[in-house]
Design a protein around this nucleic acid. Structure first.
Lengths: 63, 63
DNA sequence: ACTCGATGTAAATGTCCCTTTACATAAGGT
DNA sequence: ACCTTATGTAAAGGGACATTTACATCGAGT
């Protein structure tokens, strides 16, 4: 799964910590997802989509 | 996460096994997801959406 | 030079996803 | 009655997700 987290975060000028706070997860989780260490759970993916106001498909994409 | 798997499957007259084959997962995984035992991983959610030709948001919903 | 925020990364830990194997029930067709 | 398909469920195991604590580097600002 590739994702556009870094760009979306940059567009809003949010730090990893600021995003982590909004998502109610750890900063390390945000960093791990952003750097492709692993994919978020489906509920977390929904929350990420909600926070950015975008459909999941516009944030995450296969390969 | 609630989901409409059972209905979507019924609309296409697919057994859990038939869906599992298309998704390349076990029948038990399909059953567990369908009965709410747990949520699919994000990659599997994408594959489910692809198989049904629907966006993830129209198959899965919070709560 | 020093501090501070932001980021990357690591180890240890606990939980969740998905598997295989297996057993049980219900419904339908022969 | 028997067989087959569909479904629900359970246990055990491996790998993936997410946590906390911790240390490191880098750039901006004072």
């Amino acid at each position: 799964m590739k994702n556009r987290l870094k760009v979306l975060r940059a567009e809003r000028d949010w730090s990893q910590q600021a995003l982590a706070d909004r998502l109610e997860v750890s900063r390390q989780s945000v960093n791990a997802i952003e750097t492709g260490k692993y994919d978020p759970s489906l509920p977390l993916a929904f929350k990420i989509a909600e926070v950015f106001g975008l459909p999941i498909e516009e944030i995450f994409m296969p390969r």
